[in-house]
């Protein structure tokens, strides 16, 4: 028998996959076009508006009232916001760790009971935006920091819970099996086989969560949670544009500081691996 070799054919995208791939792209583009059309976006007008924005800002918001943000009352509000983000971040991370453990499929203590509880907990925290959490808590607890911290806690549970769970699901399963085969219960498996593997990543995520919580804290304040956001709202309502400009600048400055600090801390933690 003669062995006849036809050279094998190869193409990167075989028939059905190429159809899905290009089809998806086409649908996305079509929808984008449709949305633009539907919105009646007038591109030249949009560009003109940008110019207008610069004019208005220069006109009404310059020069910012720097003295106002250096006042004792406002500096205390900055501190409030910082405290809120710390408390909310801390409580959120503490709640997120058990929820993430429950909702990680590979090491969940019980896939029929705890897994859905964990998933549902994290998802419902994420599903509701932090402004809506604030409005909800303000209506229950009244204006002020307690409502703000509660709202930030929910926000952080949703934010960190998802990241924690993803991290747990990516661990090496070898040590988990070793602990299970030694007769360890799910809690012990979590302590000995999971925690050592995710410790560093969790620390990084916790710092990142604080950073994001700090940004959210300004918004939370705007809706009644206290702190810098609350000052912003009052001055917006009183049309104190120069003060508003100064507050926005101070928020930008603080967020940059938080971002830089969190980046530096995370890099330090990663080096300590």
């Amino acid at each position: 028998m003669v062995d006849q070799h036809t050279p094998p054919k190869w193409s990167r995208y075989k028939y059905p996959e190429s159809l899905y791939k290009h089809g998806t792209l086409l649908i996305v583009l079509l929808f984008l076009g449709y949305s633009l059309h539907f919105l009646n976006v007038d591109i030249p007008l949009l560009l003109g508006a940008l110019g207008g924005l610069v004019g208005v800002v220069g006109d009404r918001y310059y020069p910012p009232d720097v003295a106002y943000v250096l006042d004792r009352g406002y500096l205390a509000a900055i501190l409030d916001t910082l405290q809120m983000s710390f408390l909310g971040g801390f409580a959120g991370v503490c709640l997120a760790i058990p929820l993430a453990w429950f909702s990680a499929w590979n090491v969940s203590p019980n896939r029929r009971v705890f897994f859905p509880i964990g998933r549902l907990g994290v998802i419902s925290c994420r599903a509701i935006h932090e402004t809506i959490w604030t409005i909800l808590f303000v209506s229950v607890l009244g204006f002020g920091m307690l409502a703000g911290v509660s709202a930030l806690t929910m926000f952080c549970v949703g934010f960190a819970g998802k990241l924690f769970a993803d991290e747990i699901e990516a661990i090496e399963m070898g040590p988990v099996e070793a602990m299970r085969s030694a007769g360890a219960n799910p809690f012990q498996v979590f302590l000995y086989a999971v925690v050592p593997q995710v410790r560093v990543a969790f620390t990084g995520i916790a710092i990142y969560t604080w950073d994001v919580a700090f940004r959210a804290a300004t918004v939370v304040g705007f809706f009644g949670g206290g702190g810098m956001g609350w000052y912003l709202k009052r001055n917006v309502q009183q049309l104190e544009n120069l003060r508003v400009a100064a507050i926005i600048l101070s928020i930008i400055a603080m967020v940059l500081v938080a971002e830089f600090l969190s980046g530096w801390l995370r890099a330090t933690v990663n080096r300590a691996k």
């Binding site: 040590p175 099996e177 085969s181 030694a182 007769g183 050592p196 593997q197």
Partner: peptide
């Protein structure tokens, strides 16, 4: 029952950071 059965693995399966 598993407590009575010691297991040793090809990839050791130690906890590296401990």
């Amino acid at each position: 029952l598993r407590r009575n059965v010691g297991m040793i693995f090809q990839e050791f399966n130690l906890i590296n950071r401990m």
